[in-house]
């Protein structure tokens, strides 16, 4: 199959397996996209991990540990897919901690209070699941397949997050304030999360049918699903322009695309600290991987 025939094939809904021949550009785009997803799961662990030690009840402790465990599990599934496409896991990790590889914008920000823990589990995971559900139709079948398990586990995360938020909203004024403050902090990054609204036909990830929806489509879906849920709790979304038009389209203030670019290129408020933290443990435990977990010669 030449490159054009391959392109026609995936655009018609055809799926590709690991051993199939594929254009070099397709393989490179797959590795880039899937690796960034793996990096995001792994770096997404860190903002929440700090709060595993501070969870305020045994039930929350167990649920948060299980949620972070799932995210590590997702990164394992995802890096396995990348490895089978030709890039070893150790190389992905090396590129991550050297700052060469990227990860999602929301994981570059601090987690200041237990309110943030709730907002992350509820809304950041909600935004992520919208992207991930669209990957169930990815042209690369091994990636589409693991997405089933990932989406299944994410649905528990959203429930956990919503339960944390509802409990706080039913609590004291201080607790309600923690939620509102967290929402104010996370709204900007959440609006940037799905990326700038380029037409999907210009997005190479869509052209190869790695993604199956455009950025703005995903953001509209997020707003439509979650803004009513935010409003019904008496929370205020920090955007005076936010409204749903009669034709069903959500209007909002232009997200700060410069901030998005700045943050994902390694300049977020917590980027360097988190990379340093990951580097520290990767180096500290390198002997376990090389001496102990290496297969017997």
């Amino acid at each position: 199959m030449d490159d054009q025939a391959f392109l026609d094939y995936v655009q018609a809904g055809g799926q590709v397996e690991t051993g199939d021949s594929m254009p070099a550009d397709y393989r490179a785009k797959l590795v880039k996209f899937i690796e960034m997803h793996g990096n995001s799961e792994l770096m997404g662990v860190l903002p929440e991990r700090e709060w595993i030690l501070r969870a305020p009840t045994l039930q929350r402790k167990l649920a948060l540990t299980a949620k972070v465990q799932d995210e590590v599990g997702h990164s394992q599934l995802i890096y396995r897919v990348v490895e089978d496409l030709g890039k070893p896991r150790e190389q992905c990790l090396a590129d991550l901690i050297s700052g060469k590889a990227k990860f999602h914008n929301v994981f570059h920000y601090p987690t200041k209070t237990w309110g943030d823990v709730g907002v992350i589990a509820w809304l950041v995971d909600a935004a992520a699941i919208i992207s991930q559900k669209a990957l169930l139709r990815c042209s690369y079948a091994p990636y589409a397949r693991i997405m089933k398990k990932i989406c299944w586990e994410e649905s528990f995360h959203i429930l956990h997050g919503r339960d944390v938020i509802l409990t706080m909203m039913n609590g004291t004024d201080e607790q309600r304030e923690l939620v509102q403050e967290a929402l104010n902090r996370w709204w900007g990054p959440l609006m940037q999360f799905h990326g700038n609204p380029i037409p999907k036909e210009d997005d190479p990830m869509y052209v190869w049918r790695i993604k199956s929806q455009g950025n703005e489509e995903a953001r509209q879906q997020f707003l439509d699903g979650y803004v009513p849920q935010i409003w019904e709790l008496g929370l205020t979304v920090p955007d005076a322009k936010l409204r749903k038009r009669d034709d069903g389209v959500w209007e909002y203030s232009e997200p700060d695309w410069d901030e998005l670019k700045h943050v994902v290129t390694g300049h977020g408020p917590k980027t360097q600290e988190r990379l340093a933290f990951r580097r520290k443990f990767l180096e500290q435990e390198a002997w376990v991987r090389s001496v102990v977990l290496a297969e017997a010669a």
Binding site: L42, R49, Q69, V72, G73, Q76, Y79, R89, E285, L293
Partner: peptide, 8 residues
């Protein structure tokens, strides 16, 4: 959780 020597 999140920083063990291998993902598995």
């Amino acid at each position: 959780t999140g920083i063990a020597p291998s993902l598995e």
